[in-house]
Design a protein around this nucleic acid. Structure first.
Lengths: 246, 246
DNA sequence: TGCCATCATTTGTCCGGTCATTTAAGGTTG
DNA sequence: CAACCTTAAATGACCGGACAAATGATGGCA
């Protein structure tokens, strides 16, 4: 085993044993260099692994903080791509009906989860199955103003907007929040979807984050209740008596 | 932006543009050092990021291989326990209204996802917030017949039924499937919940598996659309291969 | 020909150092 | 007292170098 691997295991064990208080400060890189007689590079490599495991948090100027005793994830849902969020059987196409800037008012602020007065670029339209053209849902896509320049890059693109945003602005989606609620199908949307007005519908809101506390994109999808159900599966990935992580 | 970030983006773009053949060799670290006039450390940091994104594969002695044109990120939802499935803000209590065996007929077979003629033990009732007693949902719990002995063990237990089942029958829940759809609030349930009849409601079906292809427990929850929304968060995994703990 | 030792290549590990950026703390000033 | 400035300390970025380990090709030998 290499030095930084040994160091990582040693520190991992000490954290698990409760040597350091959770939320408290971890020794600095120089202190660890002295204590273990290794270079700063070796220490940083070990700390990096512990940070990846979610045990530590590091901040320039502030230092290293202990986040947890051990990595705990008992049940996980894994998606190979964000396309997995849209658990449709086949490919879909977006049929744009509206495009333009909106200024958020009270109603929309609540549903989108953003602040009143903000300006967002909005696309709205139908999403259809590519195979037979059946309309699955009404979709509204909101892009935060700083990124509204993608509007020109859209054109004939068939990629999801978050993919275009990632490329053009070098964003890395760090988190996606998905919120599902039941609403009554609005009249205009019912017409576009050829669905029954005021019938129960599924409202799916997805907020895309890239590091910041505010999302850079928010999408709303309204599905007729009889055409779509959201399904997810969670797998257990650790045995009951498993610990002995090191 | 730092140098290795710029380098990462440049190489990322070149890979995406098809400059390198998939499965073919990528330039060596030294070649990249010369070409971009940076140190090996900077190159390695950029390559590391590309490897984490699943674009490259590196092998000591052999070199670097191109795996894909586009980054295929992994997004995971992690739960420390199954209690995380119920994303209520506070504790809840179950108020039992019905208890007994049912034989599955056509309608129920479809909603539960089981076969006609099967016998299940059924509990039905209200779930209330422990703090203020507000009814959140109508809940129906179905336990497969082989485990119906749990009925006697229930009594005053406040634990979730899947916990009791796990203990009494030494089951280990391996998978949970959650299905969310929008329905119209049925009359009887609307009355019990003091909600509006035929208003949009959220139907959450959870099926609990323990190795077998058939669930040992299925629960249905019907939430008034204006009282509850289901929320889940997905995090991007920084690395495709799980970081080892040592 | 088939096998094995050798060697050059490439990535992995580790060392030393320097400067930049971020943060918290302390002191100064209006 | 609040706002600002300075300073120290910590992590982040970057450089140059050295050796280790893995790999694949080369060439000699039975």
């Amino acid at each position: 085993m290499t030095r930084y691997q040994e160091l990582r295991q040693t520190l991992n064990d000490e954290i698990a044993a409760g040597v350091f208080e959770i939320g408290g400060k971890f020794p600095t890189e120089f202190e660890l260099c002295e204590r273990f007689g290794v270079s700063r590079h070796t220490v940083r490599e070990a700390l990096r692994a512990l940070e990846d495991n979610g045990l530590l948090s590091r901040q320039a100027g502030s230092g290293t903080t202990v986040l947890a005793r051990k990595a705990t994830a008992l049940y996980t849902q894994t998606l190979d791509s964000l396309a997995g969020l849209f658990d449709y059987a086949t490919d879909t196409v977006f049929e744009k009906r509206h495009e333009g800037f909106v200024t958020i008012r009270e109603r929309l602020a609540e549903t989108l989860g953003c602040s009143i007065g903000e300006r967002w670029l909005r696309f709205a339209g139908l999403r259809r199955l590519a195979t037979n053209g059946i309309a699955i849902c009404w979709t509204e896509i909101f892009v935060a103003e700083p990124y509204s320049a993608i509007r020109s890059a859209l054109g004939d693109a068939t990629d999801p907007i978050y993919e275009l945003l990632q490329r053009q602005f070098d964003l890395e989606i760090s988190e996606v929040e998905q919120r599902i609620s039941a609403i009554s199908m609005p009249i205009e949307i019912a017409q576009a979807l050829e669905a029954e007005t005021h019938a129960p519908a599924l409202l799916v809101r997805r907020r895309y984050f890239a590091g910041s506390a505010n999302p850079f994109e928010v999408t709303l999808s309204i599905h007729p209740g009889d055409r779509y159900a959201h399904t997810q599966r969670l797998h257990r990935d650790r045995k009951r008596k498993a610990p002995s992580t090191g």
